[in-house]
């Protein structure tokens, strides 16, 4: 009994240290900023526009790429095919490579000389230094979160339910929309939230692809480089607060839906 109690105590202490490590920088950020600084930052139109741009582009990246990522996740969950492991590896690539390198790689294909850049040029769409470029950079680094979450969610849907629907005369498309998607929805929503959050906080890839228009992580970096810590700190606090509010709100929304369904 004594051993069990000591074990729990040691683990609690170790856990507390990790939590302290996570909380300390955020607490330091708040403690070192004055209310006046924060109030001025909140009234700063450049900051507000930048936050709006960050939220909007991340939302767009999540929404647009979800249309491509969810079908891919379904294929990966349901079918075995030659080269599947390679595909899975490619999907995880953006998570493991430095994001600045990801930005360079992306710039290679979306610049005017690149394959995507040329295709975009045909319809009057340019990527480097534009909102479209930011969307591409955010999507590139955050897609693995959605694809992997959606794949796990589809894998958790028993295949027998889909077979039962087919047996009742449903077409594969109908089965996907009436059975697989609703049952995997919670996992997919979780993936969408993670993708949105990851896209919103992206710096490395975006700064290479589009320094301007300036998303908030780039603005924080710029103000830190040009004016120092005290000038960048209030922007960071406001942006972290916005991120948290969105993250918590989306989580609550998805949990409310889960309870309503349950």
């Amino acid at each position: 009994m004594q051993n069990a109690s000591n074990f729990k105590l040691v683990f609690t202490l170790l856990g507390a240290l990790v939590l302290l490590f996570l909380i300390a920088p955020l607490a330091g950020l708040i403690l070192h900023s004055s209310a006046t600084e924060l109030s001025e930052t909140l009234r700063d139109s450049e900051v507000n526009q930048s936050i709006a741009l960050t939220l909007w582009t991340s939302m767009l990246a999540t929404g647009l790429f979800a249309l491509l990522a969810v079908p891919l996740a379904y294929l990966l969950a349901r079918y075995s095919f030659w080269g599947k492991q390679l595909v899975l590896g490619i999907i995880d690539l953006p998570v493991v490579i430095p994001h600045s390198a990801a930005g360079i790689a992306l710039l290679t294909v979306i610049s005017r000389q690149g394959m995507l850049g040329k295709a975009g040029g045909l319809v009057g769409l340019e990527f480097p230094g534009t909102r479209a470029g930011i969307v591409m950079a955010m999507a590139f680094v955050s897609l693995p979160f959605l694809i992997n979450a959606a794949r796990d969610a589809f894998e958790a849907v028993p295949e027998r339910l889909e077979k039962a629907a087919l047996n009742l005369g449903a077409s594969p498309v109908k089965v996907f929309f009436s059975i697989s998607l609703p049952l995997a929805w919670r996992g997919i929503v979780s993936g969408l939230i993670m993708m949105f959050a990851r896209g919103m906080s992206e710096f490395g890839a975006v700064v290479i692809v589009a320094y301007h228009p300036m998303i908030t992580p780039v603005m924080i970096f710029e103000r830190f480089g040009a004016f120092g810590l005290s000038y960048a700190r209030p922007v960071a606090i406001v942006f972290i607060a916005v991120c948290l509010v969105f993250f918590i709100a989306l989580r609550i929304l998805s949990n409310t839906r889960r309870r309503a369904e349950g």
Binding site: L168, A170, L183
Partner: peptide, 20 residues
């Protein structure tokens, strides 16, 4: 013939009722 085109109804051992 595809599953959905057979006039054969299968009741699965675990019933496979749609939980949602």
């Amino acid at each position: 013939l595809p599953i959905q085109k057979r006039k054969v109804g299968l009741v699965f051992q675990d019933f496979a009722l749609f939980p949602h």
